[in-house]
Write a protein that binds this DNA or RNA. Structure first.
Lengths: 219, 219, 219, 219
DNA sequence: AATGAATGAGCTTTCATTCAT
DNA sequence: CATGAATGAAAGCTCATTCAT
């Protein structure tokens, strides 16, 4: 990985107006599945190509190299998450509502696309430093930043307790959320009832716990 | 052709009474450092050998292969953590005290041995499922189990709220803790003041937040 | 950690209709030469690749591993021999004619391609049992079987003596043939005259001896 | 193999009067068993040491290196065979008697020590050229030579046919014998009856065939 | 004599990347 | 755009051999 073999100039980006080629999408989606199953390092380009039903070399037609492929996968996933977070942040409602909204959103996505979430959870921010040169870390920081801002706003409004730094709060929230999803993914957290309701139950409990931990005294 | 080479008779395990060879320790410690720096996949056996100051082949004298080396590293680290968790669980004090104790322990270890924690955090439980065939997953489950038991005891004593399943609570606690440590590792969480006090501050805030989230109403 | 890496999906076998790639042939032929010179264990894949004039990795593109390469070499050589034996068996002539035909065929092949014969002689059927898991042993048994059938037919026709079990006879015939070729290969058997005639002389003598040993009394 | 790492001067030979150390014998015998099972290249010094019940390094105390160990094994086995051949040659009886004696001797040895024969059969004269620098090939030639002399004597006495060169005859005889033993080893040749008698039956048939092939016309 | 930990060259195998078609 | 054969550096693993005890 990251063997800087030939820092080719052209970023291989399609002209901004052209629609994204169908096969590029196929590769990207296949990559998500394969990464989810074997992890970034455990999979070969050949695996992705096969899963996408395209030829070996085509991957290199659309992506500079393996790293860029990973970056693209992450970028796409994070873009969705970030957009949602931003929408929630800028939307109406109290800080508590917004935090609950974030928890709910992630768990809902997990209900419909557990694989994608799994990749985000298990691979992001777990890859060696070298990889950290792309856009991934900034994006990760952004996510923390948004939640952090929501918390700060809540504190200033007197709704949330002020003795906890927003960054620490945001980190704790995301951590609890992430580990809960991991628990679901791994099968550790497995409440009674049909799958759908299981997740809803977990969502309610997590929400209650997190909000109680942040609520300003007397509220 | 390769005659199946009778599946390696000696499990390469030292007799249980013999003291651990000095060089074995050296390799294990070196592995922690190298994994921390480059990640499991990013490092070569040669790196570990060099860092340990031993010959290449000696690694294979003490460990079956790269995987077993990783397993051993994890096993050792987890053993320490689990022992501490158990000691806290069986010790005196209320459920809140014990939970605070767990948070404090992990953050204290981080203060003195951030490298080891980093390996545990960034590499463990982030490797594809298949890998989970060793002792790692059970150990991870054990950790969750212990915290979960502490929570349950607290609930039965009326000290902690009962509307949250112990497993969900335990997962949330560990998640918040882990992400906080990650934040410290990555440099995201970076409160003012000298390093020592920074961590103490984070510890206090995390503790307050977590306990408030679990406290039974009216307490 | 090595995710089990789904057992190599493609058996690396070309579709039965496609013509064999030129380079695959080149590798196979080079392998024969190199095995002949250094023996299976004494040669490296690098040697074969160099002798074939192809890149290192291409060997692994066409063959699973070193063992499979050896198997392929053997399979090819044996296939030729077996086909010839079968043709002789099913052709016209008495049992004696057919046995003489077999002796002649092998020694003729040796005249034109001593290298290939050398590989077959020195490497085949001399490798530990375990190795025998491929197709080699069955093929070897087939060869014995064919000769054995020829002998049996000759016995039933009253042409050959009946007090010797066909299998024993076949084994003796092939053994004498093989050792003779080995003697020629090693330079032990070295009659006077130019090479061509040397071999012919040996052929006549071997034939006379073998047939006299099998002839039915009174013929 | 044969990496001429340090052509140490001392041949590691014990003083000619001293009795052979018990452990040296143990190693030699273990080597025979292990070679028989896995072949020369398929076995490790560790295998031999373990089979002999001695420590790793002791093998190197008694033998220069792996090659010398193989040489010693062969030398010992061949010495037995050669001594027997010579005894037969110099003993009384006609050429036919002597040839029958050779066949009988080898098959008898096989009855009592099939393993040792197997090593001689399957490993000797099948090892890459490089190894041929020791005493092995000469010994092999000697065996052929002795039989060859017996044949020649028989020809001069008018007992055996003269139209076959003694070397060719000797090669054929040994080849038939060797392949027959191989057949027994591999389980290909498997006549009816209890094991003991099976071998005797094979012996009689082989003898009849070989002698008929060599007898002078009119005898 | 005996032991087995220690060494390291060498070999097999993998797989990201290139390129001719 | 698409293909997949071809390349070769890199890394894991083996095992003969040495050496301190």
């Amino acid at each position: 990985m990251t063997s800087p073999r030939s820092p080719r100039a052209s970023p291989r980006r399609l002209p901004p107006d052209a629609p994204e080629p169908e096969k590029r999408r196929a590769i990207l989606h296949a990559a998500v599945r394969v990464f989810a199953e074997k992890g970034y390092h455990g999979c070969r380009i050949a695996d992705v190509a096969r899963a996408a039903g395209v030829a070996y070399g085509l991957v290199y037609h659309y992506f500079q190299n393996k790293d860029e492929l990973l970056e693209s996968v992450f970028a796409e996933q994070w873009a969705i998450l970030l957009a949602a977070l931003k929408a929630i942040q800028e939307g109406p409602g109290s800080a508590s509502d917004k935090i609950a909204g974030v928890l709910g959103f992630v768990l809902d996505v997990f209900k419909t696309a557990p694989t994608a979430v799994r990749v985000l959870i298990l691979e992001v921010a777990r890859t060696p430093k070298v990889l950290r040169s792309g856009s991934t870390p900034e994006t990760f920081f952004s996510a923390i930043g948004i939640i952090s801002d929501v918390v700060k706003a809540g504190q200033e409004a007197g709704e949330l307790r002020s003795d906890i730094e927003p960054v620490v709060a945001a980190t704790g929230i995301l951590g609890a959320l992430e580990m809960t999803v991991t628990g679901l993914v791994v099968g550790l957290v497995r409440p009674a009832g049909p799958p759908e309701e299981q997740i809803d139950a977990v969502k309610r409990q997590l929400e209650a716990m997190v909000l109680a931990g942040l609520r300003a005294p007397g509220r």
